[in-house]
Design a protein around this nucleic acid. Structure first.
Lengths: 238, 238
DNA sequence: GTTGAGGCAGTTGTGTACAACATCACGCCG
DNA sequence: CGGCGTGATGTTGTACACAACTGCCTCAAC
């Protein structure tokens, strides 16, 4: 499911070293994408190494991957800084994500099985719960899980990898401005998106699901940009 | 132009360390993509470190990036092996590349300036020279340069990064089977592709250029698969 | 002849000490 | 009072030694 820990194709024995690496990588990645480490935060290798009970060497390998994914940037003498995304780059990524969302319904679509359907219904249930008791963190996690559910709709591995990469790069930027938007309204909109896409998935029309997703990404970005314009010209550059 | 050495946005001073890293990364990447290190080749860290006059530590950072890009895979006790791509993955990547080629003409197209036009014309001249004196290596380099010229047609940075990543992953697989195809014929076809796309670029119709490119990628893969089927059922799995 | 265990050579993974570099505070000088 | 040099401090980058692991070869037992 994940892009990076090179899914052990075939019967590859996963070594203890690689397992440690995967665990560290996912942990740090999630912390970045759920804003535990917000953009601009400085990560210190030694502190992280101590926390995970390893030396700096294997930890630096993990940070190297995060840097390759564009989530952090190491600079000598300063530290490892969580990247931010300026408004221009954000616009470009959102344009790409719109196209990719449409492609998910067109390239190698997979007939949704019972498990996938159950997953989408569970997500819808969670969104209803969230609408009653709004919580930013739970909203972030629901968004992430919903995204991964959407990835199940295509069997095209490169498309999944690319979609994941772009999502992880920008979702945290969107999350960052949630407090300046209307949380309850965003949750309501998101609930409708889940309902719409679930309806499309239930009748097996994945192309419709992709188009729906595309339109929601488009409108989501429009709200983001409108908010950015309202709250002054200060962008998200870091 | 390159995806990985995080183009120093703004006036960032590039440190000596990063410069060394970029040089090593590009060198090794080119060697892999031009088949100096064919799929399955085993890279030894110590030998490479000695060649470049550094220790294993910074070299391992470079190999880590190559692994993140899917070009090599390090496994403890064995070595760092250049990856191969099986026929299923190859098919999926080519499908994605077709879509991306079309997007290059649609997402943030940039009006070709004089420099870009001159570049395309120079590439056409090189293809004509190559048609007279066929050479696999020169063909590989021309293909790479033509690809980078196409990337100039869009300003969408994520699209460029993704296109580059997928191209570098599969071009070497295609190159590998060139000897089993008709080199002269492939060069002739490629010359026509350059001519077609140059014509579209000259009148500023980037969407047409994208569609042309897409159809050529499609036909290129069809020839590749036909050859693969002819030369027995042995795939390119490694 | 076959098969299994054991050791040996070779490779990547890890820990640690030190070098290179950036930032900031402090104090000197104009 | 402002500006600049200089040192202290903290961080990432590098080198090297050793540990962990894999594959192969040898050799003995059956």
């Amino acid at each position: 499911m994940s892009v990076e820990p090179r899914a052990d194709t075939g019967g590859d024995r996963i070594s203890a070293a690689r397992e440690r690496f995967d665990r560290l990588y996912r942990t740090l990645r999630d912390r970045i994408c759920l804003l535990d480490y917000p953009p601009g935060a400085r990560l210190r290798e030694e502190a992280l190494a101590e926390e995970f009970g390893v030396s700096r060497t294997p930890l630096r390998r993990v940070l190297g991957w995060l840097e390759a994914q564009g989530l952090v940037r190491s600079v000598q003498g300063v530290g490892t800084i969580v990247t931010d995304v300026d408004i221009v780059a954000l616009t470009q990524v959102y344009q790409m994500r719109m196209e990719l969302a449409e492609l998910i319904g067109k390239l190698s679509p997979v007939e949704p099985d019972a498990e996938t359907l159950a997953l989408f219904r569970a997500l819808q249930a969670r969104s209803r719960t969230l609408a009653v008791t709004p919580d930013p963190r739970a909203f972030a996690e629901l968004n992430l899980d919903f995204f991964y559910a959407l990835l199940r709709l295509t069997a095209n591995e490169p498309l999944r990898e690319i979609s994941e990469r772009l999502y992880l790069q920008t979702s945290r930027i969107w999350l960052k401005s949630i407090p300046r938007l209307d949380l309850a309204e965003e949750i309501a909109i998101f609930s409708r998106e889940i309902a719409d896409i679930l309806a499309a998935v239930e009748i097996g029309d994945l192309e419709a699901a992709g188009l729906t997703r595309r339109s929601h990404i488009s409108m989501c970005f429009a709200r983001l940009r409108a908010q950015s314009a309202r709250s002054g010209a200060r962008g998200t550059q870091g």
